[in-house]
Design a protein around this nucleic acid. Structure first.
Lengths: 220, 220
DNA sequence: ACGGCGTTGTAATCGCTATGTCATCGCCGG
DNA sequence: CCGGCGATGACATAGCGATTACAACGCCGT
């Protein structure tokens, strides 16, 4: 499955790293920003399903950042982390346009549940993709071809999902790397090529994924 | 496909060369300027998708250069490299009109991700070019003539793309060399002529590309 | 804790073709 | 008839994508 993409904006690097590790364990692609400015940039430049935002930030404060994100064309959901358990703090956060809040200290499992809930609300993508005799069901993480189920590994599913939602457009290997892996992926890896190979094997004949010489793949 | 074009302005030649090599490996056409004045010149004379700009430059300083670029009719995006990790430095850079920043030291993979992200935001060239019975679909990297698909190699597609977007104007061989290859291309090569030849073959009859005696090609 | 299985990434190799070089050809103008 | 420019054909090769083999890792059941 194309992984969920989450941005964490948190100045406390211990917390930030713990969160990102925890989310990555769930198969989520995580980017981290250690201050508000960096967070704003990443939020503008990339596309995330959910942005986890510490309200108490140095430099650009969390509130201002939240407003900027909400007022941008971005479709990301915002989960705000508030320090105290004060009701008023929470209310303020929501008034700024956050979609949910969580007050510290919190259970990681609760954060995870909320992230998932928000991602589900993400206006993004149709739940089932179809292309030729291929069917990909996002919710069930399952793929079938000509009514035969095809078991796929996670990265394989991710690549297939990106290609299918591209609707025939060419997707470069770099784009696949960015969307299925995360920003720290080694740009010189051939992991994409290998995964495409395995995917093709599992999908069988006739070939579904076409190679466009000069850098790209597509499903016609 | 006409490759992405990037200009690196960086006085430290070790850094500059490492970056340019890395980006070239990704199929990007890279020009390099080792000081601000040279950078400004290239930025004015050529067209780049992204300009990677070291803030700390001898001669013309990075800030001034950034302003000049932003205030010029150029549509390039600017990615500024800042030395320290100071938040204020970053903010200043963005205030000057840079589109993104990155503080040293940085991961090459992160630089690459940001360059791609910025290029994506580059003002949208029309997705489909048409000229007579020729159709070039940028997203699909495909060309068809009279509804028959014509498979093209990378340079061939690049040349065709430049010629078609010229809308009937004459394009010299040198211009093609600059835009489809990069500045390190041997100026005495006849690669352009050869590629035009092969392109003409694949496109078939009647001829599409016209030769203007005295140095140029066009699609009427 | 241990061992097996499935997944993923790395690195080396293979085969092909897109691309550049060079030599030659043909046309046009002086 | 010759000089120059662009077109063309033949050839060599660099580079890219496909493929293989292997190593590392994580997950699960015992």
């Amino acid at each position: 499955m194309e992984p969920m993409r989450v941005l964490i904006v948190e100045d406390n690097s211990v917390v930030a790293d713990a969160l990102s590790e925890g989310l990555r364990d769930q198969g989520i692609a995580v980017d981290v920003a250690y201050d508000g400015t960096a967070g704003l940039n990443k939020a503008m430049v990339n596309t995330y399903d959910v942005i986890v935002l510490d309200r108490d930030l140095p430099g650009l404060c969390g509130d201002a950042l939240c407003e900027q994100i909400v007022n941008s064309p971005s479709t990301s959901r915002v989960l705000m982390l508030t320090a105290a358990g004060l009701v008023e703090e929470r209310v303020e956060g929501l008034n700024l346009g956050a979609d949910d809040y969580l007050s510290k200290p919190f259970d990681f499992s609760e954060l995870l549940a909320r992230v998932h809930a928000l991602a589900r609300r993400s206006p993004s993508t149709p739940p089932v993709l179809t292309r030729g005799d291929l069917i990909l069901d996002r919710a069930r993480r399952s793929v079938s071809r000509a009514n035969h189920p095809v078991p796929l590994a996670r990265k394989e599913l991710g690549i297939l999902e990106v290609l299918m939602s591209a609707e025939g457009a060419v997707v470069t290997a770099e784009q696949l790397l960015e969307r299925v892996w995360d920003e720290h992926a080694d740009p010189f890896t051939n992991a994409v090529a290998v995964t495409i190979l395995r995917l093709r094997r599992k999908l069988g004949e006739p070939p579904v994924i076409e190679t466009i010489a000069g850098g790209g793949y597509r499903i016609p």
